[in-house]
Design a binder for these strands. Structure first.
Lengths: 223, 223
DNA sequence: CTTAAATGATAGTATTACTATTATATTAGC
DNA sequence: GCTAATATAATAGTAATACTATCATTTAAG
């Protein structure tokens, strides 16, 4: 069984949590707690207590809670990129690749046994519920330079290139996919919490249909 | 000169800030401060000091900062709805109405002299930078019942109805417009702060083109 | 002129987001 | 097996935040 390692920029941690047992427990438990109580309610104190360690120890890995969230979310995008690459091996048409990418964005993930300390399905729910919080801050420009949004940028670039294969004249591929990706997140949230903002029934098929149709119609050349 | 009053649900304040001079000063100054330092950095203490009042007095109007933000954002959607209604008087085709709605979402607003205590242009920038924070919380379900997202829901409904006039068979009008509205916000943010996520140049024309084309192509029946 | 309501002044509390210090345990190199 | 470095634990402390409470004063309404 081969071991897979998702690499996250070293600006996103103080000490690499993937390298130690305590680090992995921090990751694992913070995912669990964030899903349970939401980002705002999580504190380093609570994480520390839950893994029977101390606040100071958690601070050795992450400068603050914001950096921890950014780490987790970048890990998610890194992970998604790996998944996409795997899937694209057997997909030949750009259209099928985009369709599959949308499915991956919206469908619940299943646990990768090679990475026991990260619960991918839970992490995905955290991304849905917390994602915009990592860039909607006054520090966005500094953090952008430090690579806080690298994972998202890359996914967006990859999908843009595929779209340009379908229609090289399409003017807004990056705007389109940043929109699609964020809609993939927010529609999941709306179905659950603000249903008047969506037409999808629970279950992900409607969202997939909505996004796929939107994407393909938009890219298509006006003949 | 007629006076215009945007009404916001009474669940969004403790004491109506529009009814007193102090209340209006709180609104005015909190808009100013939120734009300057961002939502996270604003405190009731800072607002109070800036208007030469006290923390306790600000708490008499809003239960907490989150409620204040929700109030301001709902005010914005109420305002936008009024603007839309005005504009639609002279617009006849549903297509033109949608086009104009997108323009309004993205173009900088100009100050309404009838409401001197609210700087609409600044408020719009706050909505761009802070909007998702009002629903991405663990209290979303409770707050939804209390009408925290009423303004957004309404705009979304209005635009959905117009879209259905163009194509009554379109399956996802609410999903489409919640996506379009949130893209209108986030593209403005991306152009400024995360340019790899957008193809638009600064200035709002590109964003308008992107969103208009996306909307119309998506709604159109597949013949 | 009286009373109620709004505001100001001040104080206090629990929690948070850290920083610092020292002690102890573990590990790696010699 | 000893030493030195490193990681972690234990504990304490600070400044800021997000409130709540109390009481005095001003203002406005009948």
């Amino acid at each position: 069984m081969n071991v897979l390692n998702i690499t996250v920029s070293n600006k996103l941690y103080h000490k690499n949590p993937e390298e130690t047992d305590l680090g992995k427990r921090i990751l694992s438990k913070s995912i669990e707690l964030m899903e349970q109580m939401g980002y705002e309610q999580v504190t380093f104190k609570k994480i520390a207590t839950a893994i029977e360690s101390t606040e100071a120890s958690v601070y050795r890995y992450f400068q603050n809670k914001h950096q921890l969230l950014a780490y987790l979310i970048n890990w998610y995008w890194g992970w998604l990129e790996v998944k996409l690459a795997q899937e694209f091996i057997v997909l030949n048409s750009p259209e099928n690749k985009l369709k599959r990418a949308i499915q991956l964005l919206v469908s619940p993930m299943d646990q990768d046994a090679r990475i026991p300390h990260i619960n991918e399905a839970t992490l995905q729910r955290i991304v849905v519920a917390e994602y915009p919080k990592i860039y909607l801050t006054k520090e966005v420009d500094v953090e952008n330079k430090e690579g806080y949004f690298h994972g998202y940028n890359r996914i967006c670039d990859i999908l843009s290139l595929i779209a340009l294969q379908i229609n090289p004249a399409y003017r807004f591929p990056h705007s389109l996919f940043s929109t699609i990706i964020s809609a993939a997140q927010s529609q999941q949230f709306f179905v659950k919490h603000l249903p008047r903002l969506s037409d999808a029934k629970s279950g992900c098929e409607d969202i997939i249909d909505f996004l796929t149709e939107l994407t393909l119609k938009t890219i298509k050349t006006d003949e």
